[in-house]
Design a protein around this nucleic acid. Structure first.
Lengths: 192, 192
DNA sequence: CACGTTTTTGACAACAACGTCAAAAATAAA
DNA sequence: TTTATTTTTGACGTTGTTGTCAAAAACGTG
């Protein structure tokens, strides 16, 4: 390696994440990303090739940021505890005033259409990954006797991922109210 | 009225709705709206003033389209029937292949930020309206003895509106799968 | 029918964003 | 220290989008 990259890639990912999260995909231009990251537009093109690869990098960083919390949640034996902790990860993210409202992945899921198939595929894969984590946790909890054998782990996993996305939409739509989000979560836990 | 408007305003609202619904707010230009509606760009500026008023008109038409179904759902005495019918309105919308995937209001809620305060306010108001409808229905059902007096009608209303938005996100993220949406709804109804 | 008002139309200039490129700068390795 | 390779930088032309405007067309009213 001869001419070495001058900027910190992880920091670029974080700043780009913040920018996309707060303003969305279409409302963010390469010039905005240059301003947000402090890296010149030409360098971003040289390093990543365009806007979509930067978003995908930001989405990966975003998913990685919550992964420890989710895995800790799924270490709890009782499903009601685990699902409460799972939702709490999202609540804490929304409660932190340093974060933009809502959820980056949810926003991109709604915004990314046929125009950016690679982004849509990544979102699909990220959602599926979380659903699979929850489903296998719930299936194990079921075989360990913590969950009624009549319940459907897959449907429950979809439900909890779904309600976490719904909470993000409500958070954003209602001006960042965290009380609303907490109320939704508490009702959702009665599904168990 | 002398020089009378040459196009059907309701039809413009419908075509604009379809365009915004399928492609989103930022990804739709005035030229796109002109092409979608068959009305020239200049005429749209003359009639509405810009893109945001057209979106707001489309959002009103969108809300009006599902209002009868929701009111019919809330005519059912038993809350479990009513909430099932409420969610079914959304499911049927997503199951119709003629409709774009997801939900226009949910998409705009995620996409509209500080850049378009008037749009964000309208979305907030539309969400609140539905929540209020559900809350007063549930409060009445509760006083009529159909719902456990220990339950919180407001929190339940927020939950059901929230899960309907979550269903829309999951629908869009997973390429329009309706089975996923149905599974989520069936689990959500166990919260009652 | 003629008038006055409004809409429609096509065009315009200004601005924003894109993607590329050649020259300059930086640095690891020889 | 020189060389080879990569990144950085600023600028360029192209394209797309915006908002406006004046002329033309349409139409209800008198």
């Amino acid at each position: 390696m001869v001419g070495v990259r001058r900027f910190d890639e992880a920091e670029v990912a974080d700043r780009a994440m913040e920018r996309f999260w707060r303003h969305g995909w279409e409302a963010t231009t390469m010039a905005d990303l240059a301003a947000a990251t402090g890296v010149q537009r030409g360098s971003l093109y040289n390093a990543y090739g365009g806007k979509a690869p930067i978003l995908m990098m930001a989405l990966d960083a975003y998913a990685a940021r919550w992964r420890p919390g989710i895995q800790a949640a799924l270490a709890k034996p009782e499903p009601s505890d685990a699902m409460a902790a799972f939702l709490e990860v999202h609540i804490e993210r929304m409660a932190d005033p340093a974060n933009p409202p809502g959820c980056l992945a949810t926003m991109v899921a709604m915004e990314a259409g046929e125009a950016e198939p690679s982004v849509a595929e990544l979102i699909d894969a990220q959602f599926t990954r979380t659903e699979d984590l929850l489903e296998s946790y719930l299936a194990r909890a079921q075989s360990d006797g913590w969950l009624d054998p009549a319940r459907n782990p897959q449907a429950l996993a979809l439900f909890f991922v779904g309600i976490s996305r719904g909470m993000a939409v409500m958070h954003k739509a209602h001006g960042g109210s965290i009380q609303i989000v907490r109320k939704i979560a508490s009702e959702a836990l009665r599904a168990l």
